[in-house]
């Protein structure tokens, strides 16, 4: 009985088992803590840094674009002017419809506000004047061509074509659409996002970037 065991941290019993290393324990736990904190709080920073160092591969041809609640996979793409793109836009949500719009300059002020303020969409729509071919429509909620030059394959009724707002294919849960185009000569960084449901999808992070390299 160690009735007198007024332990101090250094004191260990003369037990026969080998002691594990204190330094290893402290070092390991602190390292795990740092890794955990970075994983939790610094993911986007790490990803950005990695992208800065290693770059991002240029995508062309068939590229799947998945919409989830409320994010895209991928949320960063690099295209090159003149490449042929076949975006397979697919809505993976069970409950929500999602759209894909692309442009520049959105009124961020609106997303911060509470009360009466009017929203607006992209000030510049990426798809203005871009020839696009749509095919394989499945569970299309609606489609707004805006100023794009759209060719529809198959019966037009499947696309539920509407007006108002930016170029935006909107898919029902489980829907998909094939969007084929040649990357127009609009190099630079473009934003894409989903504005449905009072812009809340965009506000809560359903957005991404396309970096278009010159030819």
């Amino acid at each position: 009985m160690d009735n007198d065991s007024k332990e101090t941290p250094e004191e260990v019993s003369a037990s026969a088992s080998p002691e594990w290393s204190r330094r290893q324990f402290l070092g390991g736990t602190v390292a795990l803590g740092v890794v955990g904190a970075v994983a939790l709080l610094g993911r986007s920073t790490v990803v950005d840094a990695a992208r800065g160092i290693f770059g991002s591969p240029v995508r062309s041809g068939r590229v799947p674009l998945y919409a989830y609640d409320y994010y895209y996979v991928p949320n960063y793409m690099t295209w090159r002017v003149g490449d042929r793109m076949d975006i397979i836009f697919q809505n993976q949500s069970h409950t929500h419809w999602h759209e894909w719009t692309m442009g520049r300059h959105v009124n961020e002020q609106y997303f911060q506000a509470f009360g009466e303020l009017s929203a607006d969409a992209w000030r510049v729509d990426f798809w203005d004047g871009v020839p696009v071919t749509l095919s394989d429509p499945y569970k299309i909620d609606n489609f707004v061509p805006h100023d794009a030059l759209v060719t529809y394959e198959g019966p037009r009724s499947l696309y539920n074509i509407q007006s108002g707002g930016d170029f935006s294919p909107t898919l029902k849960p489980g829907g998909s659409l094939h969007i084929a185009f040649t990357v127009p000569n609009k190099p630079g960084i473009w934003d894409f996002g989903c504005f449905v449901q009072e812009y809340v999808h965009y506000r809560t992070g359903m957005r991404g970037k396309v970096h278009i390299l010159p030819a």
């Binding site: 509470f114 009360g115 809560t204």
Partner: peptide
């Protein structure tokens, strides 16, 4: 008086804070 507003009081997803109407 801003207490005269329709406000969603049960959390209903990311848009919950802005689910209000004058």
């Amino acid at each position: 008086n801003p207490m005269s507003r329709v406000q969603c009081a049960e959390v209903c997803g990311p848009g919950h804070p802005w689910m209000e109407a004058p």
